[in-house]
């Protein structure tokens, strides 16, 4: 076990090379609807139970199913109204369980990235062969259902092993949403590939906001607006990224969706300065236009440390 994963180098949020997003935009904004399947009776992972209560946890299970039957459609309609595309954080088994959602997202040219097979199958304890099987399943399943080659990853239920990021880089993923150290993308130190750390967010994630932080619907909208205003102002100096990670079983609840719409309306009203896009488009742009300059800046400042993730202890 290591004290420091050495997945990226320390890089202070000041005097970085300026990022200007396409069209001269200051802030790249993306929305990540998590389209998930939590199994009714998941197998046991020794490190973590599938549900907080004994299975079947009918309250927890049915609320998530409500998210797919009712909530997703409400959220999609809202995003349609503001001409915003989602980047779907997908438990890929949803392609089998609920192809209707997948088809509706494809029709809208939404992006898909892998969020594992099920949200009740954790990476803890997997060997390399098993982790590869999950990644290959993800790529194959989404390609078959949508024609898209997935380029992003968010580990199911945010569970990792030391090799997860090396493996996704090897499979030519462009970005990971698993790391939260920054409001700008950064190159990651994987053994191969060109993997970008994509700002996702826990703090403005609806799970954390409504749950751990106990925000009411209006406060969440207010927090999102403040978050957006600050990152937009900073984007003047160098382009920032804001993501709103969502779960239809939470945000689409009848008491929440309209207050949430106010935040989306706020974002949409700044379209001239904001690149409303998908994670893959941000990652693609960053890899092409900002990757080398970022590494060069880290090197110039003497902040580059040897080794790759989990391979060499830093400092």
């Amino acid at each position: 076990m290591r004290a420091d994963p050495n997945l990226y180098d320390y890089w202070p949020y000041t005097d970085r090379p300026k990022i200007v997003w396409p069209g001269g935009k200051k802030l790249a904004f993306w929305i990540a609807p998590n389209v998930e399947y939590y199994e009714f009776e998941p197998p046991v992972n020794p490190s973590r139970p599938g549900w907080p209560r004994p299975t079947p946890d009918v309250v927890g299970y049915s609320q998530r199913d409500w998210g797919n039957r009712v909530g997703h459609w409400r959220l999609m309609e809202l995003l349609d109204k503001y001409d915003m595309r989602g980047s779907v954080s997908l438990n890929v088994a949803m392609c089998d369980h609920c192809p209707e959602i997948i088809e509706a997202c494809v029709e809208r040219n939404w992006e898909f990235f892998s969020h594992g097979v099920y949200n009740t199958r954790y990476s803890y304890g997997m060997d390399e062969r098993q982790e590869r099987a999950v990644l290959e399943d993800s790529i194959r399943t989404v390609e078959r259902a949508t024609g898209q080659r997935i380029r992003g990853y968010l580990a199911p239920a945010l569970t990792h092993t030391e090799r997860t990021l090396d493996l996704i880089a090897e499979y030519d993923f462009w970005y990971t949403c698993d790391l939260f150290q920054d409001d700008q993308p950064q190159p990651l130190k994987t053994r191969s590939g060109k993997l970008v750390s994509m700002p996702y967010s826990l703090e403005v994630n609806d799970v954390i906001a409504y749950g751990a932080l106990a925000m009411d619907p209006w406060r969440y909208a207010d927090v999102l607006k403040r978050h957006f205003d600050q990152l937009l102002a900073e984007g003047e100096e160098t382009g920032t990224v804001m993501c709103i990670p969502l779960h239809a079983y939470l945000v689409s609840q009848p008491h929440r969706i309209r207050p949430f719409e106010e935040a989306i309306r706020h974002v949409a009203s700044f379209r001239d300065d904001v690149w409303i896009t998908t994670a893959a488009e941000i990652a693609g742009f960053f890899r092409e236009h900002c990757w080398d300059a970022s590494l060069a800046d880290i090197r110039r400042r003497g902040l580059e440390r040897p080794g790759t993730g989990f391979q060499a202890e830093a400092g």
């Binding site: 290591r2 997945l7 569970t159 990792h160 092993t161 698993d178 790391l179 939260f180 150290q181 826990l202």
Partner: peptide, 13 residues
Amino acid sequence: TPYPDLRHYTTRD
């Protein structure tokens, strides 16, 4: 969370 808790490592970082 169980090791490696990249989520909390990076949010603190």
